[in-house]
Protein backbone atom coordinates (compact mmCIF):
# COMPACT_ATOMS: atom_id res chain seq x y z
CA UNK A 1 0.00 0.00 0.00
CA UNK A 2 2.84 2.30 0.92
CA UNK A 3 4.58 1.35 -2.31
CA UNK A 4 1.43 2.28 -4.16
CA UNK A 5 1.08 5.76 -2.65
CA UNK A 6 4.75 6.55 -3.26
CA UNK A 7 4.43 5.24 -6.81
CA UNK A 8 1.27 7.21 -7.38
CA UNK A 9 2.81 10.39 -6.02
CA UNK A 10 5.84 10.03 -8.26
CA UNK A 11 4.28 8.74 -11.49
CA UNK A 12 0.51 9.25 -11.06
CA UNK A 13 0.27 12.49 -13.01
CA UNK A 14 2.57 11.17 -15.69
CA UNK A 15 0.50 8.03 -16.22
CA UNK A 16 -2.82 9.85 -16.14
CA UNK A 17 -1.56 12.33 -18.73
CA UNK A 18 -0.16 9.43 -20.77
CA UNK A 19 -3.51 7.64 -20.67
CA UNK A 20 -5.40 10.75 -21.73
CA UNK A 21 -2.89 11.52 -24.50
CA UNK A 22 -3.17 7.97 -25.80
CA UNK A 23 -6.96 8.06 -25.76
CA UNK A 24 -7.05 11.51 -27.32
CA UNK A 25 -4.70 10.65 -30.18
CA UNK A 26 -6.42 7.33 -30.85
CA UNK A 27 -9.95 8.76 -30.74
CA UNK A 28 -9.24 11.71 -33.02
CA UNK A 29 -7.32 9.58 -35.52
CA UNK A 30 -10.04 6.90 -35.56
CA UNK A 31 -12.70 9.54 -36.10
CA UNK A 32 -10.80 11.26 -38.92
CA UNK A 33 -9.90 7.90 -40.45
CA UNK A 34 -13.62 7.13 -40.73
CA UNK A 35 -14.42 10.56 -42.14
CA UNK A 36 -12.12 9.75 -45.07
CA UNK A 37 -12.31 5.95 -45.00
CA UNK A 38 -16.09 5.56 -45.28
CA UNK A 39 -16.43 7.47 -48.58
CA UNK A 40 -13.41 5.62 -49.94
CA UNK A 41 -14.82 2.22 -48.94
CA UNK A 42 -18.23 3.12 -50.35
CA UNK A 43 -16.62 4.23 -53.62
CA UNK A 44 -14.78 0.92 -53.91
CA UNK A 45 -18.04 -1.00 -53.43
CA UNK A 46 -19.98 1.18 -55.90
CA UNK A 47 -17.36 0.94 -58.63
CA UNK A 48 -16.82 -2.82 -58.25
CA UNK A 49 -17.81 -5.06 -61.15
CA UNK A 50 -21.10 -6.02 -59.49
CA UNK A 51 -21.59 -2.56 -57.93
CA UNK A 52 -24.15 0.09 -58.75
CA UNK A 53 -21.70 2.03 -60.93
CA UNK A 54 -19.11 -0.42 -62.22
CA UNK A 55 -15.95 1.41 -63.24
CA UNK A 56 -12.93 -0.76 -63.66
CA UNK A 57 -10.42 2.08 -63.95
CA UNK A 58 -11.54 3.91 -60.81
CA UNK A 59 -11.88 0.67 -58.89
CA UNK A 60 -8.43 -0.54 -59.85
CA UNK A 61 -6.76 2.77 -59.02
CA UNK A 62 -8.51 2.97 -55.64
CA UNK A 63 -7.48 -0.62 -54.94
CA UNK A 64 -3.86 0.22 -55.68
CA UNK A 65 -3.86 3.34 -53.52
CA UNK A 66 -5.39 1.40 -50.63
CA UNK A 67 -2.95 -1.50 -50.98
CA UNK A 68 0.07 0.78 -51.16
CA UNK A 69 -1.15 2.69 -48.11
CA UNK A 70 -1.61 -0.53 -46.21
CA UNK A 71 1.73 -2.01 -47.15
CA UNK A 72 3.99 0.80 -45.90
CA UNK A 73 5.14 0.01 -42.34
CA UNK A 74 3.85 2.66 -39.97
CA UNK A 75 7.26 3.50 -38.54
CA UNK A 76 8.56 4.28 -42.05
CA UNK A 77 5.46 6.26 -42.97
CA UNK A 78 5.77 8.26 -39.77
CA UNK A 79 9.10 9.71 -40.93
CA UNK A 80 8.51 9.60 -44.67
CA UNK A 81 5.54 11.96 -44.60
CA UNK A 82 7.04 14.51 -42.18
CA UNK A 83 6.85 17.30 -44.80
CA UNK A 84 3.18 16.51 -45.41
CA UNK A 85 2.56 16.37 -41.66
CA UNK A 86 4.15 19.81 -41.23
CA UNK A 87 1.99 21.17 -44.03
CA UNK A 88 -1.25 19.86 -42.51
CA UNK A 89 -0.62 20.13 -38.77
CA UNK A 90 1.99 22.88 -38.72
CA UNK A 91 4.34 20.61 -36.82
CA UNK A 92 5.64 17.07 -37.09
CA UNK A 93 6.11 16.73 -33.35
CA UNK A 94 3.95 16.00 -30.37
CA UNK A 95 0.32 14.98 -30.26
CA UNK A 96 -0.66 17.11 -33.26
CA UNK A 97 2.22 15.80 -35.32
CA UNK A 98 1.27 12.20 -34.51
CA UNK A 99 -2.34 12.44 -35.61
CA UNK A 100 -1.55 13.09 -39.30
CA UNK A 101 0.48 9.89 -39.89
CA UNK A 102 -1.98 7.91 -37.76
CA UNK A 103 -4.86 9.04 -39.98
CA UNK A 104 -2.88 8.46 -43.17
CA UNK A 105 -2.10 4.91 -42.15
CA UNK A 106 -5.62 4.20 -40.90
CA UNK A 107 -7.65 5.50 -43.87
CA UNK A 108 -6.81 2.61 -46.23
CA UNK A 109 -7.35 0.14 -43.40
CA UNK A 110 -10.75 1.64 -42.63
CA UNK A 111 -11.66 1.72 -46.34
CA UNK A 112 -11.10 -2.04 -46.52
CA UNK A 113 -13.04 -2.66 -43.31
CA UNK A 114 -15.96 -0.59 -44.60
CA UNK A 115 -15.79 -2.31 -47.99
CA UNK A 116 -15.98 -5.68 -46.22
CA UNK A 117 -18.90 -4.58 -44.05
CA UNK A 118 -20.86 -3.31 -47.06
CA UNK A 119 -20.06 -6.36 -49.16
CA UNK A 120 -21.45 -8.58 -46.42
CA UNK A 121 -24.99 -7.27 -46.67
CA UNK A 122 -27.48 -9.24 -48.73
CA UNK A 123 -27.32 -8.10 -52.37
CA UNK A 124 -31.08 -8.62 -52.46
CA UNK A 125 -31.50 -5.60 -50.19
CA UNK A 126 -29.70 -3.33 -52.63
CA UNK A 127 -31.87 -4.68 -55.42
CA UNK A 128 -35.00 -4.14 -53.31
CA UNK A 129 -33.91 -0.55 -52.66
CA UNK A 130 -33.43 0.00 -56.39
CA UNK A 131 -36.77 -1.59 -57.21
CA UNK A 132 -38.52 1.05 -55.07
CA UNK A 133 -36.88 3.85 -56.98
CA UNK A 134 -34.08 4.76 -54.56
CA UNK A 135 -31.21 6.67 -56.14
CA UNK A 136 -27.57 5.77 -55.55
CA UNK A 137 -27.15 8.18 -52.65
CA UNK A 138 -30.27 6.84 -50.94
CA UNK A 139 -29.07 3.28 -51.42
CA UNK A 140 -25.72 4.20 -49.89
CA UNK A 141 -27.06 5.70 -46.71
CA UNK A 142 -30.43 3.99 -46.32
CA UNK A 143 -29.37 0.50 -47.37
CA UNK A 144 -25.60 -0.01 -47.39
CA UNK A 145 -24.62 2.06 -44.35
CA UNK A 146 -27.79 1.48 -42.36
CA UNK A 147 -27.78 -2.28 -42.83
CA UNK A 148 -24.08 -2.68 -42.11
CA UNK A 149 -23.97 -0.32 -39.12
CA UNK A 150 -23.38 -3.04 -36.47
CA UNK A 151 -20.51 -4.41 -38.55
CA UNK A 152 -19.05 -0.94 -39.11
CA UNK A 153 -19.12 -0.30 -35.35
CA UNK A 154 -17.29 -3.58 -34.71
CA UNK A 155 -14.75 -2.48 -37.31
CA UNK A 156 -14.33 0.84 -35.55
CA UNK A 157 -13.42 -0.94 -32.31
CA UNK A 158 -10.80 -2.96 -34.20
CA UNK A 159 -9.45 0.19 -35.86
CA UNK A 160 -9.30 2.00 -32.53
CA UNK A 161 -7.34 -0.83 -30.94
CA UNK A 162 -4.92 -1.09 -33.87
CA UNK A 163 -4.31 2.65 -33.76
CA UNK A 164 -3.81 2.45 -30.02
CA UNK A 165 -0.82 0.24 -30.75
CA UNK A 166 0.47 2.64 -33.40
CA UNK A 167 0.22 5.53 -30.94
CA UNK A 168 2.96 3.82 -28.94
CA UNK A 169 5.21 3.94 -32.00
CA UNK A 170 4.30 7.56 -32.54
CA UNK A 171 6.09 8.11 -29.22
CA UNK A 172 9.19 8.23 -31.43
CA UNK A 173 8.15 11.71 -32.53
CA UNK A 174 7.60 12.70 -28.92
CA UNK A 175 3.88 12.20 -29.15
CA UNK A 176 3.52 11.03 -25.57
CA UNK A 177 1.00 8.49 -24.46
CA UNK A 178 1.27 5.22 -22.57
CA UNK A 179 3.45 3.41 -25.10
CA UNK A 180 5.90 6.28 -25.04
CA UNK A 181 6.06 6.14 -21.22
CA UNK A 182 6.59 2.39 -21.27
CA UNK A 183 9.51 2.80 -23.69
CA UNK A 184 11.14 5.83 -22.09
CA UNK A 185 10.83 4.84 -18.42
CA UNK A 186 10.80 1.07 -18.65
CA UNK A 187 13.31 0.52 -21.40
CA UNK A 188 15.56 3.56 -21.50
CA UNK A 189 15.62 4.47 -17.78
CA UNK A 190 15.13 0.96 -16.49
CA UNK A 191 12.09 1.56 -14.32
CA UNK A 192 10.25 -1.75 -14.79
CA UNK A 193 7.44 -0.82 -12.38
CA UNK A 194 6.44 2.17 -14.53
CA UNK A 195 6.60 0.02 -17.64
CA UNK A 196 4.47 -2.72 -16.12
CA UNK A 197 1.81 -0.27 -14.94
CA UNK A 198 1.76 1.46 -18.34
CA UNK A 199 1.35 -1.88 -20.08
CA UNK A 200 -1.40 -2.93 -17.67
CA UNK A 201 -3.21 0.33 -18.40
CA UNK A 202 -2.92 -0.41 -22.13
CA UNK A 203 -4.38 -3.89 -21.62
CA UNK A 204 -7.27 -2.54 -19.54
CA UNK A 205 -8.07 0.19 -22.08
CA UNK A 206 -8.05 -2.24 -24.99
CA UNK A 207 -10.37 -4.62 -23.13
CA UNK A 208 -12.63 -1.72 -22.27
CA UNK A 209 -12.82 -0.41 -25.83
CA UNK A 210 -13.53 -3.88 -27.21
CA UNK A 211 -16.27 -4.43 -24.65
CA UNK A 212 -17.86 -1.05 -25.32
CA UNK A 213 -17.64 -1.63 -29.09
CA UNK A 214 -19.31 -5.04 -28.80
CA UNK A 215 -21.97 -3.60 -26.52
CA UNK A 216 -22.86 -0.76 -28.90
CA UNK A 217 -22.82 -3.07 -31.91
CA UNK A 218 -25.21 -5.45 -30.15
CA UNK A 219 -27.38 -2.56 -29.05
CA UNK A 220 -27.85 -1.13 -32.56
CA UNK A 221 -28.24 -4.52 -34.26
CA UNK A 222 -31.93 -5.25 -34.74
CA UNK A 223 -31.41 -8.79 -35.92
CA UNK A 224 -32.42 -11.30 -33.31
CA UNK A 225 -30.21 -14.32 -32.99
CA UNK A 226 -32.51 -17.29 -32.85
Amino acid sequence: MEWFSTFYETYGDLLIKGTLDSLYMTSISTLLAYVFGIPLGVLVVLTAQNGLHPNKAVNTILGWIINIGRSIPFIILLFAIIPFTRLVAGTSLGVKGAIVPLVVTAVPFVARMVEQSLADIDAGLVEAGQSFGANTWQIVYKVYLKESLPSIIRGAAITFISLFGYVAMAGCVGAGGLGDIAIRYGYQRYKPDVMVVAVILCVVLVQLVQTIGDFIARKVDKRVVR
Partner: peptide, 25 residues
Amino acid sequence: MIFQNFSLFQQRSVLKNVTFPLEVN
Protein backbone atom coordinates in the same frame (compact mmCIF):
# COMPACT_ATOMS: atom_id res chain seq x y z
CA MET B 1 -41.82 -5.85 -56.30
CA ILE B 2 -41.60 -8.76 -53.86
CA PHE B 3 -38.84 -11.32 -53.63
CA GLN B 4 -38.21 -14.96 -52.83
CA ASN B 5 -36.24 -14.17 -49.67
CA PHE B 6 -38.45 -11.19 -48.79
CA SER B 7 -35.49 -8.74 -48.85
CA LEU B 8 -36.70 -6.81 -45.86
CA PHE B 9 -34.30 -4.31 -44.34
CA GLN B 10 -33.09 -6.04 -41.19
CA GLN B 11 -32.17 -2.84 -39.36
CA ARG B 12 -35.55 -1.19 -39.94
CA SER B 13 -38.73 -1.90 -38.04
CA VAL B 14 -41.71 -3.38 -39.84
CA LEU B 15 -43.30 0.07 -40.11
CA LYS B 16 -40.07 1.66 -41.41
CA ASN B 17 -39.68 -1.07 -43.99
CA VAL B 18 -43.07 -0.17 -45.37
CA THR B 19 -42.33 3.58 -45.42
CA PHE B 20 -39.07 3.03 -47.35
CA PRO B 21 -40.52 3.50 -50.86
CA LEU B 22 -42.24 6.71 -49.71
CA GLU B 23 -39.02 8.02 -48.15
CA VAL B 24 -37.01 7.58 -51.31
CA ASN B 25 -39.45 8.84 -53.89
